[in-house]
Design a binder for these strands. Structure first.
Lengths: 110, 110
DNA sequence: TTATTATATTGCAATATTACGATAAAAGAA
DNA sequence: TTCTTTTATCGTAATATTGCAATATAATAA
């Protein structure tokens, strides 16, 4: 079917999946890393940084934005992108929870 | 084309993307949460916990295993699954890096 | 006004993912 | 041995994703 049965899972599970999925492509990891490297906003040079055509980069940016991982502000002719800390905070909480739970209980068997 | 140009990105970027992608489905988030909740290994009751058919669950488990997020050991008739701390460690490092970089440099503009 | 520049959208082909019924495989029980 | 239980694999249909050329849009410059 190719269609995820989202309605069978909780909203929290779906939100986490959306955030993780948005990072599930090397181009989008590269975008995030670049935004972190140059810090603050990037106005216009993201396309030149990636080995992909402009429409493809635009599409990846849109997915990151829809997921809530980056923000974009119009800045004259260009657009200003930067990390959205709220989205990253949500997914980071999940990994913190995983690690805390793992170190807390130590009766592993595998 | 539907084919990711993995070879255009670094190995580290691809590894992170694979880990994130594996978590990019609510069923797989649910599996991880369940493994954490019951702690240690689960031998046999994962299918009953999810609103999906057995072959579908088996497929999701395989993807988590391939990505390095869970481990599976044969235990008689059943199979014993548990969290793979190594894979989670890798992806958690990325989010730690993101947060550290964000709090360090504070010249945001968005 | 007409360029020019930067980004988004459309349309499409190639490929990947999701889901599940049917079936297979593997191990223990009878 | 046959039966039962548990998990994996195969095959297939429906849908989603990736990538890009072509085009559209929006803002500024000339």
């Amino acid at each position: 079917m190719g269609v995820t049965k989202s309605e069978m899972f909780t909203q929290a599970q779906n939100e986490l999946a959306v955030l993780a999925k948005a990072l599930g492509h090397p181009a989008r990891i590269a975008i995030i890393e670049y935004l972190l490297k140059v810090n603050a906003c990037i106005c216009g040079d993201i396309v030149g940084e990636l080995p992909l055509a402009q429409p493809t980069v635009s599409q990846h940016l849109k997915e990151l934005k829809n997921a809530g991982l980056i923000k974009g502000n119009i800045e004259g002719t260009a657009i200003c992108y930067c990390i959205d800390e709220e989205g990253f905070g949500k997914i980071k909480s999940f990994f913190d929870y995983v690690q805390n739970t793992l170190t807390e209980k130590k009766e592993k068997c595998c």
